[in-house]
Design a protein around this nucleic acid. Structure first.
Lengths: 219, 219
DNA sequence: GTGTATGAAATCGTATACGATCCAGTGTGA
DNA sequence: TCACACTGGATCGTATACGATTTCATACAC
């Protein structure tokens, strides 16, 4: 069955926001979106309400919706939250990661290592996303998985406007990934895996914070 | 200004779901809710979309919305997630907790201790909620605060149907609260506070899991 | 030149209407 | 008795319409 108009509108907006077509601050005008989709405003309103509840857009009564503003601080905050939740997701997923998945993760990480020679920040980021998502693909806790997804969505939405590449981090990142995979392969205790996964994201976060002359994250 | 109909509908439903009036599985019929509120269905639909995005209701196309189902597993999962996020929120808030707040927290905990003599589970739960919320009231990270709130909402929504009191936990809980407050008062490092806050919720969670003959949480 | 009133255009908020879809209960034939 | 097509009612999905609110440009007073 064809998706409902409301669903279509939701997907369209979600995609355009997360892929950077609509940058933070972009004004979402109901009528215009409805016209583009060839539908009325009612389904579009619903879609926007959902996006609002997910934190991707802000909504002001009688004024309208805009793509959620994202300053560096919010970016950091999101990274921080994501660090915590991702750590949990990875630890919970670890017992269910099979050999294929592990191999895929190693292969992605190798591709990232290869990129270090002739660096391409955009491609590196893509691979990085893939790597992380492979790890908790079969997380048994749908609630945590949903929170991780939300975190990544926010990051993606912000990245276009505030992404900075930090020299040297890429190399460390690849190493940290490898260590994490080793832990998982060795069936390390969940708490240890969680700690490693969290530390990895926190280290990245702190690199960003340092680059912006901000104090390091306390966690 | 009077809240919009959409906002009213949202608040009404949110409240009824979280306070247990509408238990999981309860069918939310658009027309009926609209009639009760004296408005049309359009604002009600928007409200339900928001609640759906927050995980409080499930929505099936052409069928309708129901209050999100909650089995014991989901309850546990939510507790687990909350443990992690709450730990972070508490740690981040600690540097901003002033003397008044600390005193308030101690006073609430004392009231909980007093309740142990002539136990009242409902009142104890209320105080427990208050205690936790005092701790991260001025968390500097709005994103984390939002996630904590979401977690509590889910718990509240589920509690009416699946709340179980575990004998003996109350006493330990009060002790753990006191230790946490001591750490905060002593300006302990954030990581240590986070660990204590997380451990507190995880211990509670594991008590529930044990009571249900389920394996303990790995984190 | 600065600040304030005014009005029109843009946009939002919601009611109403109606076709589309689902569901439960009924009847029919094997 | 059971399986299955049918049908009526309940409910959802969306278009359209219009009043309400905001915004911004313009005109005017000081």
């Amino acid at each position: 069955m064809a998706p409902s108009k409301s669903e279509s509108a939701y997907r369209l907006l979600h995609e355009k926001i997360t892929d950077g077509t609509f940058t933070p601050g972009y004004r979402l005008v109901l009528g215009a979106i409805a016209a583009e989709l060839g539908c009325s405003v009612v389904p579009v309103r619903e879609a926007i309400r959902r996006l609002e509840a997910e934190g991707l857009v802000t909504f002001e009564r009688n004024v309208g919706a805009t793509v959620a503003a994202a300053d560096l601080t919010l970016y950091m905050h999101t990274m921080q939250t994501l660090a915590i939740i991702e750590g949990a997701a990875t630890a919970l997923s670890a017992p269910f990661i099979d050999a294929d998945q592990l191999a895929a993760a190693r292969s992605i990480n190798q591709a990232m290592a290869d990129l270090l020679v002739d660096f391409d920040a955009v491609r590196f980021t893509e691979l990085n996303n893939e790597f992380h998502q492979v790890l908790y693909r079969n997380c048994p806790n749908p609630h945590i998985l949903e929170l991780v997804q939300r975190g990544w969505n926010r990051l993606a939405a912000m990245r276009s406007s505030s992404f900075i590449h930090i020299p040297g981090r890429a190399r460390e990142s690849v190493k940290e990934h490898a260590s994490l995979l080793d832990l998982i392969e060795a069936n390390a205790p969940a708490a240890q895996i969680e700690q490693a996964a969290r530390a990895h994201r926190t280290t990245t976060l702190n690199a960003y914070l340092a680059a912006a002359n901000l104090p390091a994250s306390p966690l």
